[in-house]
Amino acid sequence: MIEYLNLFWKYLPMLLNGLKLTLLIALLGISIAIILGIFLCVLSISKNKILEKIASTYITIVRGIPLMILALFLYFGVIKNSMSTNSAAIIILAINASAYMAEIFRAGVQAIDIGQTEAARSLGLSYFQTMRKVIFPQAVKIMIPSLMNQSISSLKDTAILSAITVNELTLTSKVIIARNYRAFELYSYAAIIYLIVIIFLTYLSKRVESKLNYTQR
């Protein structure tokens, strides 16, 4: 037990360095995914059949491919040496998460009563003004739990990016294990660190949710 703890303290700084990269990639990847997701959502609810088809095809493809394959294919097959590993990781994570984000946004927007759109349009607001001022603010409230879930899921997905040599928490643990063969210890340290971060984020998202719960209807 003492040895387990000693080893933990010894490797903690290295693991925290890995965690830093994990969080950075997750934060940037998820942010880009949200922007991409809103864009895809706008396409998929547009009345234009072609735009709708483009969005739905993208979503089907991305959701149908395991992240590991998507990462290996894009990194070793397409991106190669044209950018840094970390940038590639952010883009891959963003592409993967954007498909799920788009579906969350679409469900959120479609959950809002059509009467809201009709009232706003009959007052003279344009389609985009209606979306921005009436529909989206209401939809976001409904979507927060799913958005938080997807973000946490994407954060955990960064572990898969160790396969393309991103020096995040999982790869850091692997590298240490390759030197000292302490798989039980190192992987359990990594698991505990992931767990603490995610419990903290879940707590945070619950706080945000309850803050946003103003009286409605």
Binding site: D113, Q116, E118, A119, A120, S122, L123, G124, Q216
Partner: peptide, 20 residues
């Protein structure tokens, strides 16, 4: 169409006030 509509008020069965 937006300017056109802004000149015609509409009141709905289910009020459709903006809850936010």
């Amino acid at each position: 169409v937006n300017t056109y509509r802004s000149n015609i008020g509409m009141v709905f069965q289910h009020f459709n006030l903006f809850p936010n």
